[in-house]
Amino acid sequence: MSKNFKTFRTVILAAVAATTGIIAVGATPLAAHEHKEAAAPNIVETAQSTGVHNTLVAAVTAADLASTLSNPGPFTVFAPTDTAFAKLPEGTVSTLLRPENKGTLTNVLVYHAVSGSVTSADLIKLINKHGGEATIETLAGQNLTARLSGDNIIITDAKGRATAVTTADVQTSNGVIHVTDGVFLPA
C-alpha cells in the first residue's frame, strides 16, 4: 500500500446545508484507490504515514479514537501538524496525554472532526454563499468558523484562534484530511 497520498484519486463528495450555513454532510461511500487490490489508507493510517502528525496520532491513540477514525465514516479531519502542537503553551500536550485528562483530550480532538467528507471546494462554496464566513459544526457539537484570506482557508475556533489550512483535500478511504498550522481549542 502506497504511503504517497499524491497518488490518491481526488474525490469530491459532500452536501452543504443550503440555508443555515452549517455543513451537514450525509454518509456517501468513497471511491477506492485506483488499484483495486489495495484500498486507500484510512484517516489514521494516513496520519501515521506523514511523519508530521506524530503528536496527533499519539493523542488519537491516548483518547481511544483510533478505531472510530478508522471506521467507514466518512469524516473530515482538520489535522494539526507536530509543529502546530508545539505552538501550544509548554506542557499542554503532555498534560492532555495523561490518562486522567482523557475526557478533555477527546473533546479537543473531536473538535477537529466533521461528519462527512468536506473538500476545500465545498468550504469555499459555503464561505462565498454566506457572505465570506461559514459555520462548521464539529463532532464535539461546537462550531468552527471558516473564511478566506486570499487563497487560503482560515478556520477560527471558539477561542478566537485563527488557523490556516496548509494542505487541503488529502483523500483517504473514509474521508478527507485538511492539514492545519494550528490546534483548535473548544470553548
Rank of each mutant, 00 (worst) to 15 (best):
T28W: 06
A86T: 00
A39Y: 05
N101D: 02
P89T: 02
G141F: 01
L148I: 02
T180D: 08
A62C: 12
T81A: 07
F8V: 13
G160I: 00
V11I: 15
L69P: 08
S67R: 10
K125T: 14
A158M: 04
T119D: 10
V57K: 07
A40S: 14
G73W: 01
T28Y: 10
I124E: 11
T163I: 08
K129Y: 06
T106L: 11
N101Y: 05
D151V: 09
A63D: 05
H112S: 08
K159Q: 14
T104F: 08
I153K: 06
I136N: 08
T92D: 05
S49P: 05
D181Q: 04
V60R: 00
I23A: 13
A66N: 13
V176I: 08
P29M: 10
A86F: 02
V165E: 01
L109R: 01
K36R: 12
A168N: 07
A15D: 14
K125C: 12
K159N: 12
S70W: 03
L69V: 06
A158P: 04
R161S: 15
V183D: 04
L185F: 11
A146C: 09
D169W: 01
Y111P: 00
I136Q: 09
G103M: 08
K36V: 11
R161F: 13
A18Y: 10
F75R: 02
A38W: 09
N101L: 03
F5H: 09
T167M: 09
G175H: 03
I155L: 15
E34H: 12
N107E: 14
L56A: 05
S94R: 07
I22Y: 11
A121V: 09
I43V: 10
K6C: 14
A79C: 04
V183N: 05
A134W: 01
G21I: 01
A59L: 04
I177V: 11
E137V: 09
V110P: 05
V25R: 09
A40I: 03
D169H: 04
T55M: 04
T81C: 07
A39T: 07
G175I: 00
A58N: 09
T138N: 07
I43L: 15
T50V: 01
K129C: 07
T119C: 09
E100F: 08
S70V: 01
H112D: 05
N107S: 14
T163Q: 11
D157T: 02
D181W: 01
S149I: 05
I154R: 06
V52Q: 03
A24H: 11
K3N: 15
L30M: 13
T167D: 09
V108Q: 02
Y111W: 03
K102Q: 10
M1R: 15
A17E: 12
M1N: 11
I43N: 03
L123K: 07
T61W: 06
V25C: 11
A15C: 12
I43S: 08
G131P: 01
T7E: 15
T119A: 15
I12C: 11
F75I: 00
L148H: 03
A168Y: 02
I124N: 13
E100W: 04
L109S: 05
A79E: 02
R98D: 12
A113K: 03
N71D: 15
A66Q: 08
S115M: 10
I136D: 04
T81L: 06
D157V: 00
T135K: 13
S149A: 15
